[in-house]
Simulated scan of single mutants.
Amino acid sequence: MQHTAAGLALAGFGHHSGAQPSSSLDMAKIIVGFAPGGTIDLAARRVADKLHPGFAKAVVVENKTGAGGQIAVIGVKSAAPDGATILITPTSPLSLHRYTYKTLPYDPVNDVVPVSGAAMFDYALAVGPLVPAEVKTVADFLQWCRAEPAKANFGSAGAGSAANLIGAALGKTGRADLRHIGFRGSQPAILDMIGGQIAAVVGPTGEFMPNAKAGKCRLLVTSGPTRGKFTPDTPTLVEQGFKSLSHVGWFGFYVPAKTPSDTIRRLNGGIATALASPDVIESLASVYMEPMPTSAERLGEMLKTETRFWDTLVKSVGYTAEG
């Protein structure tokens, strides 16, 4: 089952044109479920800068961290449905977490509604100095893992994360006992990898690029259906025989349920205009992401596709839901 977020997203490009209606809000806030300084926070701030005065007289970003993005979803679901409170989130709290948590404090289908895609990125598997230089492909890595079971491990941004499950699925598909080590974010995992404490890390491609360019780690594969714009020399999972695991990561914008359709249309148009700005495109590229404007309807379709993908993957690796 190849994941086709990029193809779905492209259908949303050019969907909106013309000037937006004058603002009816004094202030709007974009809620981010992760700490300032990360890629999703950057995307939120770049779009916020462009949403005023067309959508609101002022637009601010508020970070509500915790529970892998769930605190932010809770904050938006309970807000007034007037367009003044906007969620930007990776898909995990709305798609993956229903399979990796026993219960969720919100309904991922009915408590928030889609507005527009935001940005997309590939995942990558990278290896550090613990892994011999002759390991150049995923198959090589899995063969090395089978030969060196004590060293066969990989890190990710946390147990039950998208990166954790992609790595686990690679190990299972390749018949290697690949032990997962969870960290508080990708960067601490990468530091241990380049220091030789762990063998590999799975995470968003952009997280690896400074160290990869410096020769401190090696990208073996990226997750998208085609080679990444920023990593043209790195083969994909599809090319290396793992088509069913192909996956594009992305962020999207949502608002509370019962937000009027006209408000959603206005916000969608403002986001599309922001994501088309050359300085926003350049800013996203600096962290190895591409803009992903979509219609609200298209984002809803993508979320359904994403949910099916994780349902299948979680079952395939036998992941047990946590509290």
Rank of each mutant, 00 (worst) to 15 (best):
G12S: 07
D311E: 15
P260I: 06
T236K: 05
P129W: 06
A176K: 06
H97T: 12
T91E: 07
G300L: 09
G270V: 12
K258T: 12
G252S: 12
F13W: 14
Y319F: 15
L87W: 03
G206M: 07
G185M: 02
D107M: 09
I181M: 13
L51T: 03
I31E: 01
V131L: 06
V59L: 03
G270D: 02
R265E: 13
L165E: 02
L220P: 01
H52Q: 15
A157Q: 08
V115G: 00
F121N: 11
R98L: 08
G66L: 13
S24L: 15
R175E: 13
F309V: 03
P232V: 13
V59G: 02
K151T: 04
A150F: 05
H16F: 15
P278Q: 07
V255E: 00
L267H: 03
L165S: 03
G83W: 00
N211L: 11
A163F: 02
G215S: 10
F242V: 04
R184H: 14
N63V: 04
G228A: 06
A19D: 14
T100F: 10
A257L: 05
T85F: 00
V317A: 01
C217W: 07
K136C: 09
G269I: 09
A176S: 11
K243G: 08
A84K: 06
P90N: 12
K64T: 14
T226I: 13
G252A: 08
W310G: 02
L245V: 09
P90L: 06
S95V: 11
T226Q: 10
V248I: 05
N164I: 04
P81R: 07
H15V: 10
R298L: 13
F55N: 03
M302G: 04
L303S: 00
M289T: 03
G160Q: 03
L313C: 04
K102H: 14
A80V: 12
